[in-house]
C-alpha cells in the first residue's frame, strides 16, 4: 500500500529531474546544429586514430610484441589502441567540460539564465555531462569500429568496451567540470592542458607502468587515466579479471565526487 503510493511519486520526481537535465543537453544539441562547430566536432575523432596509426602501427613496427599483465604477448598496436581509446574518451569529455563549460559559465553566462528557471545546478552539471557523453560516445564508437576493422580487438569485445568508454568519459567530464569552477582565467587552462597531456603520456599508455621505478609506478596507479587504460585494455584484449571491478569503482567514485563539487561550486558562483 505504502509502496504503491510512494513509488510513483518518487518515479515522477526522478523523471522530472532527469527531464530538467536533458533540457540542458537539448540546449547544446540546438547550439551544435549551427555553423562551424560541426567541423570541430567531426575532426575530433580523427586525432586518436592518427595517434593509433603513428604510434601503434608506425612505432609498433620498431617495438614488436609486448607482454600484458597476465604474460600474454600482443602486438604493440593492440597494446596501445585501448589506451588511445581511453585517452580519447578523457580528452573529448575534458574539451567539453573544461574550455566549453567555462566559456558558458563565465564568458557567455548561459547558466545565469538557466538557473533563473526551476533548473538546479545539479541538473545543469548532469545535463552538460550527458552532452559530453553523446559527443564522446560517437568518437569512441568510431574508434572501436576502426579497432575491430584493423583486428586490434573483436567485434564482441568492442561492444563491451563502448559503455566503458562512456564511464571513463563521465568520470573525467565530472572532474573537469568541477575543476573549471575553480579556474579564474583562461590562462589557468594551460595547467589543465599540461596535466592532461601528462596523464596521456604516463598512464601506462605507451608502456606498462611496471617499466617505471616503483615510486613512479605507484603514482601512476593512483592517477585516474591509468584506471581507464587498464580497464579498457583488459576488455579489448579479451582478458578481463577481478581487477576491473576496482577500476570501475574508482571511476564511479571520481564521477560522483566531480559532480558534487561542480554543482556545489556552481551554486556558490551563481546563486550568491
Amino acid at each position: 500500500m505504502v509502496t504503491t503510493l510512494i513509488f510513483p511519486r518518487a518515479m515522477s520526481r526522478l523523471d522530472h529531474r532527469a527531464s530538467g537535465a536533458l533540457s540542458v543537453t537539448a540546449r547544446n544539441l540546438a547550439a551544435a546544429r549551427h555553423a562551424a562547430y560541426w567541423w570541430v566536432l567531426l575532426s575530433g575523432f580523427v586525432e586518436p586514430l592518427l595517434y593509433l596509426l603513428s604510434i601503434g602501427v608506425g612505432v609498433g613496427r620498431l617495438v614488436g610484441d609486448i607482454a600484458l599483465p597476465d604474460g600474454r604477448l600482443v602486438t604493440y598496436a593492440q597494446f596501445v589502441a585501448p589506451a588511445m581509446l581511453a585517452a580519447s574518451a578523457m580528452n573529448g569529455a575534458l574539451a567539453e567540460t573544461t574550455m566549453n563549460f567555462y566559456g558558458k559559465l563565465k564568458f557567455m553566462r548561459i547558466y545565469d539564465a538557466t538557473l533563473a528557471t526551476p533548473i538546479t545546478p545539479m541538473q545543469v552539471s548532469v545535463g552538460e555531462l550527458i552532452w559530453a557523453m553523446c559527443r564522446g560516445g560517437v568518437y569512441s564508437a568510431v574508434f572501436l569500429v576502426v579497432m575491430a576493422a584493423l583486428d586490434l580487438t573483436t567485434w564482441g569485445w568492442a561492444l563491451v568496451a563502448l559503455p566503458v568508454t562512456l564511464l571513463v568519459g563521465f568520470a573525467f567530464g565530472a572532474l573537469g567540470m568541477g575543476l573549471s569552477t575553480l579556474l579564474r582565467s583562461w590562462q589557468d587552462f594551460d595547467y589543465i592542458n599540461v596535466t592532461q597531456f601528462g596523464l596521456f603520456l604516463f598512464s601506462g599508455t605507451f608502456s606498462p607502468p611496471s617499466d617505471f621505478p616503483v615510486p613512479l609506478q605507484i603514482l601512476i596507479e593512483v592517477t585516474p587515466l591509468y584506471h581507464g587504460v587498464a580497464l579498457l585494455r583488459a576488455i579489448t584484449t579479451g582478458s578481463p579479471d577481478w581487477t576491473v571491478l576496482w577500476h570501475v569503482a574508482y571511476l564511479v567514485a571520481l564521477a560522483v565526487a566531480g559532480l558534487t563539487m561542480a554543482s556545489r561550486r556552481m551554486g556558490v558562483l551563481l546563486l550568491k
Binding site: H16, S19, G20, S23, V24, A26, R27, A30, A31, H34, M108, R109, I110, D112, A113, T114, A116, T117, P118, I119
Partner: peptide
C-alpha cells in the same frame, strides 16, 4: 535580468524554445 543573458549560440526562436524546456 539587468544584463541580457541571451544565448548567442542559438537563434532568436531557439532562445525561447530551449528556455521553455527548462520549465518542462
Amino acid at each position: 535580468p539587468q544584463q541580457d543573458s541571451l544565448d548567442l549560440e542559438l537563434t532568436v526562436l531557439e532562445n525561447l524554445t530551449v528556455y521553455a524546456r527548462y520549465f518542462n
